[in-house]
Design a protein around this nucleic acid. Structure first.
Lengths: 147, 147
DNA sequence: ATATTAAAAGACCAAAAGGTCTTTTAATAT
DNA sequence: ATATTAAAAGACCTTTTGGTCTTTTAATAT
């Protein structure tokens, strides 16, 4: 559905949030291991997320990644759009353009509600809500789901 | 939503069907032009579709692509699965595996109906039904939608 | 101060997707 | 027969995505 970078980013963000709720501030090595993603690639992605302002980090001893708690919850949609661009999961899915225009192709009316559902899903779910869900279920749920 | 090859394949198939309903048997040059896809890439894709048994072709003068009318209608799903593999549009979309298992992530229940809707869409719509729809609307609707 | 730790920066590499072009094969009209 | 036409085959190239690794910078504990 989404590309690898987006997947790793979402998993990484959720993992940081889970750890932060427990009072920890994880580093790249731990994050990559726990979300089952390539070490250096994960590092690169987490750095990009910091640059984009989605989370914060500190260098050196005791350093790692963490969220600014004063900020509002982060919807998945914001992350997806930042990484994949504004047209992620838009388009009618069949290469026929103009599905947003007044011109409708025969797939348009069928796909429109699907796109709306996806939009709702990624708008209503946030990194924080997912972290709470995973955390409530089981300490190692995230890890096991990824295996 | 789907990759370029799938898009061009679907558009090419629908175009061939539209022309066949008019008694024509289009070639690669015409197809590529009308579906607004790269000439040689379109050729390669159409050849693959023939090899996979989705349509037929003849070489030489008066040659081109056409459907075996004795075959049943071709659902979009068959084409999508043949090109993108059986896992196209499956997975919960967030990189969390095991969404089909008894283990559910918190996104699973929300994504399941979306996946089902997509599955319904690509199962019920066929190359033939789309060709009829486009044809009924306007001779050049396909072309214009693609511009 | 300095040694240690961990993120930041960025060069580099591999695989896949997307796309181009030439040569070969087969059909058909003359 | 043969010239012409158009698909088949396949070599090759470009861009994007995914991934690796080294060097630099900054924070902190001693």
């Amino acid at each position: 559905m989404f590309n690898k970078e987006t997947e790793y980013a979402l998993r990484g963000l959720v993992y940081v949030q889970i750890q932060q709720m427990k009072g920890f501030k994880p580093g790249i090595i731990e994050i990559a291991k726990e979300i089952d993603a390539p070490l250096f690639y994960t590092g690169k992605i987490m750095q990009r997320l910091v640059k984009m302002g989605f989370l914060m980090s500190t260098k050196g001893k005791g350093g790692g990644f963490y969220f600014d708690l004063s900020k509002p919850d982060l919807p998945l949609k914001a992350v997806i759009k930042a990484i994949e661009g504004p047209k992620a999961y838009s388009g009618c899915g069949f290469g026929l353009k103009s599905c947003d225009d007044d011109q409708h192709c025969s797939l348009h009316d069928q796909y429109a509600p699907i796109r709306a559902s996806i939009d709702k899903l990624v708008s209503e779910n946030t990194v924080q809500s997912l972290a709470s869900d995973f955390n409530n279920c089981d300490d190692i749920l995230l890890k096991r789901l990824i295996d």
